[in-house]
């Protein structure tokens, strides 16, 4: 076992402070996660300054708990991986400062990790990634299709032009008087209703892989407000089902087209909204019906949200490719993969 690699991985890009110990990029020894949801629920969304303050309360404890639970001493570690972007700058800085300090004190290599690569590599805990591969990343901040021709190469071929899917869920959740975050509630409600409102499917048939959810959001809000004005009561279950069907239809049809046009061996579903049952089920049945040869890997439900383990998985791959950072590493809140919409054509 002399070749096994242990990585301490730190994630603090949004409202979860997480520290994991990951072995060989595919085995979780520990995955400390402290969530701030109860705090941000007060404000109906994540308040960056509040998030940053909470991360400091948790970060050292998280490192200690992760090591103890994994029964790993700092001397056993091979590297420290950390999310350095994208995300909230003040939140990222806590993880980056802690990772640099810990790596420096224990003389360990420091591996900078793109948070979105982390989400994709959550699939690594299910099975190895086979290239070329396509990842559908859906979260509160992102909706994008990422083409991976080879290991550690990421190219965005399509992304949302306005709201991320998760963002749209939270906004319409607010209109329905739901607590933040609303995604899970709407998903559950949608399963009890039917698509009766037939909301628009924006850009569904456009010749690109971009998404747009702001038109859908407006259509939804207008429908609800109009009903309020004339004193009409709308069925919340049907509203949720119609909204979700529109989101899922667009995402699934674009993903299907990308799968068909790219010569890929595997499709990966990841990101916070990847926990959405409606999306998981629709993708499952589309692939069964239209792309039966394609290997479809869903990030484990427990690892769809932000967590350190996924950063450890991506960090392991980055380390194999010789990536490292020095003590000047800074947070990069708008970090992005290369944008290559023409990779397909």
């Amino acid at each position: 076992m002399g070749t096994s690699k242990l990585i301490l991985a730190i994630e603090s890009s949004c409202d979860e402070t997480s520290v994991a110990v990951v072995k060989n990029g595919n085995e979780i020894l520990s995955n400390f996660i402290a969530t701030q949801i109860d705090s941000h629920q007060r404000f109906g969304g994540v308040v960056p300054e509040v998030a940053s303050r909470h991360h400091i309360e948790q970060i050292t404890l998280g490192i200690d708990q992760a090591l103890k639970k994994a029964a790993v001493e700092p001397d056993d570690l091979d590297a420290v991986a950390v999310t350095y972007g994208p995300g909230l700058v003040g939140a990222l800085l806590v993880g980056v400062s802690a990772a640099k300090s810990f790596a420096y004190a224990h003389n360990l290599p420091l591996i900078p990790v793109n948070h979105m690569a982390g989400h994709i590599y959550a699939a690594r805990f299910v099975k190895p990634i086979v290239f070329p591969s396509l990842a559908l990343l859906v979260s509160g901040g992102h909706t994008e299709l990422v083409y991976m021709p080879a290991e550690n190469v990421f190219k965005i071929i399509g992304e949302t032009r306005d709201d991320a899917a998760g963002e749209a869920y939270d906004k319409i959740g607010r209109v329905l008087g739901m607590k933040y975050p609303a995604g899970k509630n709407i998903d559950e409600l949608a399963h009890q209703g039917h698509d009766t409102f037939n909301f628009p499917r924006a850009m569904e048939h456009d010749d690109n892989f971009d998404f747009s959810f702001s038109g859908l959001k407006s259509a939804f809000i207008n429908t609800v407000h109009h009903a309020d004005q004339i004193g009409e009561e709308l069925d919340r279950k049907d509203l949720a089902a119609s909204f979700q069907q529109s989101v899922v239809d667009v995402i699934v049809s674009k993903t299907k087209r990308a799968c068909e046009q790219l010569d890929i061996k595997q499709l990966i579903l990841a990101g916070g909204v990847a926990a959405n049952q409606g999306l998981r089920e629709t993708l499952d049945s589309m692939i069964k019906k239209d792309l039966p040869e394609l290997d479809f890997v869903k990030a484990p439900l427990k690892l769809c949200g932000d967590n350190g383990a996924m950063i450890g998985a991506a960090g392991y791959v980055a380390m194999q490719h010789g990536e490292s950072a020095d003590l000047t590493l800074n947070a990069d809140p708008s970090l992005e993969f290369d944008w290559e919409p023409d990779a397909v054509r």
């Binding site: 940053s52 400091i56 970060i59 050292t60 200690d64 003040g90 800085l93 806590v94 802690a98 300090s101």
Partner: peptide, 19 residues
């Protein structure tokens, strides 16, 4: 500055913990 304080205190507490 909130950002400056965060960097200093996170660095200080993690270093103190680590060594």
């Amino acid at each position: 500055s909130y950002t400056g304080l965060r960097i200093a205190v996170t660095t200080a507490k993690t270093l103190a913990y680590a060594v």
